[in-house]
Design a protein around this nucleic acid. Sequence first.
DNA 1: TTGTAGGCGTTATCAC
DNA 2: GTGATAACGCCTACAA
Lengths: 337, 337
Amino acid sequence: MRCYRAAVAPDRRVPTLADVARHAGVHPATVSRTLSRPELVAPATRAAVLAAVEALGFEPNLPARQLARGRTDAIGVVVPDITNPYFAAIVRAVQRSAHDLDLAVLIADTDGDPAAEARALATLARQVDGIVAVTPTSEPDAGRVPVVQVNRRSRRTPSVVVDQRAVVDLALDHLAALGHRRIAVVRGPGTYWSAARRDRAVEQRAERTPRPKLRLDPIGPVPPTFAGGVDAFAAATQRSTAVVAFNDLQAAGLVVAAHRAGVAVPDACSVIGSDGLDIAAMTAPGLTTVAAPLDALGDIAVEQLGALLRGEAARGVVTLTPTLVERHSTAAPPRTR
Amino acid sequence: MRCYRAAVAPDRRVPTLADVARHAGVHPATVSRTLSRPELVAPATRAAVLAAVEALGFEPNLPARQLARGRTDAIGVVVPDITNPYFAAIVRAVQRSAHDLDLAVLIADTDGDPAAEARALATLARQVDGIVAVTPTSEPDAGRVPVVQVNRRSRRTPSVVVDQRAVVDLALDHLAALGHRRIAVVRGPGTYWSAARRDRAVEQRAERTPRPKLRLDPIGPVPPTFAGGVDAFAAATQRSTAVVAFNDLQAAGLVVAAHRAGVAVPDACSVIGSDGLDIAAMTAPGLTTVAAPLDALGDIAVEQLGALLRGEAARGVVTLTPTLVERHSTAAPPRTR
DNA sequence: TTGTAGGCGTTATCAC
DNA sequence: GTGATAACGCCTACAA
């Protein structure tokens, strides 16, 4: 069996600023300046320095730079589960935006465990300048570094959230327009900030009683997973002609459970999801869903964090508006046909 | 609107080793020792130091430590797209294993762009001790830091791969046992190492002609996506009674396309996926699939990298064996019923 | 425009 | 067992 070893440079250690300076015949400080503030250095020396940098293949040692500068130029992002497409989408957006700001991204996956979350925060806090926390179930405390929260608002930190009332209205208005009058609304976990928020929106909607008047059946709380959706199907379709899921995973579960039960979607039962994940397009029929602006969620979180890092004030709470994506899991209720 | 600023400690700067030393009435070196090699310090002093650490809320400055130690205790992982559940699963595994080794994880998402990939590698290489590269389309060159590749073998670096021949055999044997004799095999992108590998396995299988003799229809190359699967459906079912997809995303697309075309799965057409993602359980019918040991892929990659970092030799190539997960997208071909 | 010098916070090698 | 001291590699007033 072939074996491999770390490719240790056989003789030459990695070049430092001093090496470059020697090679270019200038002082180390000049090299440093050439790299960080080129405009402060004469074109001729600059060229010489850059040539030397090139020749030696010099790359600044980041820990040294971080130590001297007092910052890491990295941010952390903590999510419960990176394999959940919802969080993956946010992480991707964060990663991109951070990259545009020349910030590295450290990631921590907490498995949804509050203890792991606290640990992750503490660990991250020591090696990044700021943190984007996507922690549905608990409020993060990162100690010294600034935090921006996604999908949870708090008094202590800026945050960017999705307007849950708009989610509810978009879903219910759509179903109402199709002719549904009795609608099951699947609740998310009681521990989720956004679920609590949505519950309230549903209650308020019931109180506001806009026309047409809807009868709303709260179901659950139900885990925000595919399995949760499967399990909730029976209860959800007991009395209602349509179901609003807490998220797309649940909605996909509902659709599959309907299929198994021989219930036609959307003809016998409408299902509407939430989040607008890619998988919503991958069910049969394709899922009508209330799409959250996932990229924007991440982008704005990073933007806010960037402002904080520059010492600027960040807006307290940014509320993003969802949009309805119509596919084929919703239609008029059976009796009106 | 409420505004927030970075929580700058109003008066007290963050405590350093020297502060702790002063507080405990010992020399800074003793504090350092207490933290990194407690067994070398007298119990009494140790207690005093730890008390001081506690009292001041001291946490070592990582960049300083990294500079002094000459290592970062972090690894990087680069993937084409973190929102692809396949890569997300690997990242999760990497993240966990790394955590167990007290290594932080930096993540880079390259969007499948080779240029971005090279950039990501270069950037990562400067801030981590090693890299796990999941780059299906190209061979990474990270310069000075050791690299372990996932799902691609190379002469230069250790790697951990899935046995593509076993994937092919598992899928074809399963279909053959059900009675299928003419089977479409959807090819992955020509740029993927694993796709090339699988193509070869398919060819070899055709040559080996085990009984029963199968007629294999290669389809594509087809993008390894849901849309790719949808598009490939017509061609794949032209002449065959079963389709082997390149991965689960494609398989899900095939199933949905079948549904749209009014073709019953598995009664009229069997579909088998590959990878064993969560979404394979989320289609209707549930996807029979050849599951790759995704967690093991990540775990072993980190393990190998860990060995490299400790200066030990790593095994050259670790080949992992997939397993068949039977669900409900495969059945006997129509004519045998 | 460039050089000087001190410091960033920790570790490691010595003596004591 | 503990203290002194010199790196680690870079940055940045400040001086020239």
